[in-house]
Design a protein around this nucleic acid. Sequence first.
RNA 1: GGCCCGGUGGUCAAGCGGCUAAGACACCGCCCUUUCACGGCGGUAACACGGGUUCGAUUCCCGUCCGGGUCACCA
Length: 562
Amino acid sequence: MDYHKLAELLFPHITETPADMEAKYPPRKLPEGAKVTRFAPSPTGFVHFGGLFPSTVAERLAHQSGGVFYLRIEDTDAKREVEGAAQGLIKTLATYGIRFDEGAVLDENGDITDKGAYGPYKQSMRGPIYQTYAKQLVMEGKAYPCFSTEEELDELQQINKKEAIKNTDWQAEAEARRAETLARRSITLEEAEEHIKAGHPFVLRILANGDPEKKTKFTDLVRGALEIPENDEDFVLLKSDGIPTYHFAHAVDDHLLGTSHVIGGEEWLPSLAKHIQLFSYLGFRLPKYMHISQIMRLDENGNKKKLSKRDMGANMDDYTGMGYSPEAVCEYVMTLLNSNYEEWHSKNADKPYTDFPFNIKKMSVSGCLFDFNKLGDVSKNIISRMSADEVYAKLTAWAEKFDPDFAAQLTADPAYTKKILAIGRGGKKPRKDLTTWLDAKPYMGFFYDPYYTMVDGYPANFEKEDIIATLEKFLETYASGDAMNEWFDKIKAIAESLGYASDMKAYKANPSAFRGNVADISSFIRVAVTGKQNAPDLYTVMQILGEERTRVRIAAQIADLK
RNA sequence: GGCCCGGUGGUCAAGCGGCUAAGACACCGCCCUUUCACGGCGGUAACACGGGUUCGAUUCCCGUCCGGGUCACCA
């Protein structure tokens, strides 16, 4: 077989050589130890939690080492591409603090454009580059054309499709594949010429020379020593539209763009054999690989499953709607990614997570379950550490988007809202009332008249009359100028006058001697003023609400109860 | 089914041949407290199983079992 002739036949339009490409994409000049990483999503939808994971690692590793982190759009599958997905991806990533030094970026019109010297960063625009290397492989007898149509292939592979897999005769299937491969490889130059003349499309396949019985030793940066069987599958390099498959694009691009560390989910592990072979065929140095464990969820049978598109928490765009701030999500990701993050964080509470020395060695090799409890805890702590001003800014920004009505209330009187948000905040041990922004309305809504309603109702074991009597007495003595002690002394006095214990110890010693205790009295007033049994410190609540509104609410309650 | 990767409490996890097997979240109890929360104290709960190697295995090796991934002109 005259491989040169075949190569010319297949790629007549390619006149450049790999050497020309190397000249266009010279090695990067970076300091020793600087890592070059990338995030390479295919624009088929939203950013998935399982995608934020590796991209966070990639971003940290690059920026922590003074390297380069770039975004490459893997739009090699036109069929699956979703309009506007790439733009969405970039925006979402940005909200999670994933910033790229280079690659596909948004211009002022929101369109995708290139930034950096190694572009284009959209693979669909790099066709000739891949074809240059493809031509080279053909010339070296390492790749060959396959003119089978997709339909023929489908038929042949039907037994290999997922559903059929379980019930197949594996022996026979394997033999069929082998025979098929042999038949494909036996194509002659003359046959190829005829096909080309007839205008038949073709895919380019690698001529695999591996023996799966033989294993290659391989070191994965997170998983350690691995044994990879050699590849014997003639997988597709170029699709019939001349665009590469992931495997080929990965080899060419990561070589040309100087990627030092390839970071991906462990679902990529099985295709490593292909990549090792391809890099070797191409004469490229293999980058370092890290395969990150996947995020799982529990299915209805209690089994772990990879967190997929439909699952709660999968779409990164959902978190803001659920009231989680990006910081919380990022920090949660860090706790999953590096087991010693939490320890570091407790010692460096005031520092951003980007100051944390991210360590590959501390990454887990076993997959983990997504845990909303933990995310909630992280989120709660973050919010508790914020100043009232900060909470105000973030909460109102959130509400403007997701609850405009609430936002209008919050911003009508900023000083008032900030007073509310300042409750229990700022000390060494701040209150942790808000897990997400979604909690804000139920927690503090009663401060705003439109949201003031009876959510809880009064304690069940008291009569209406008890409550009315308490409220009436309270109105008689209440004065908003009272200091906290005076205010509470008055409540105690009411308790006593009505036959309730003002002293909790006395009450506990002999409960039957009293109608109730001062806590009950407080709770009547609390419910009347806030509509809820759980609220921040009542005295403070009244101070913020002001005497007039406090009185109006209590009076209304009395009228209501009567 | 082949191949690959995993397996410490409910969850995330320290551990790297010798420990009463950390910690965090969740859960439970007590204390503090005019409610709730916060906080403090305490508690329940784990090395999948069977063989080796070793004076000694959670730790090293093998097997079993279990879980996950993957087997496209998708990435």
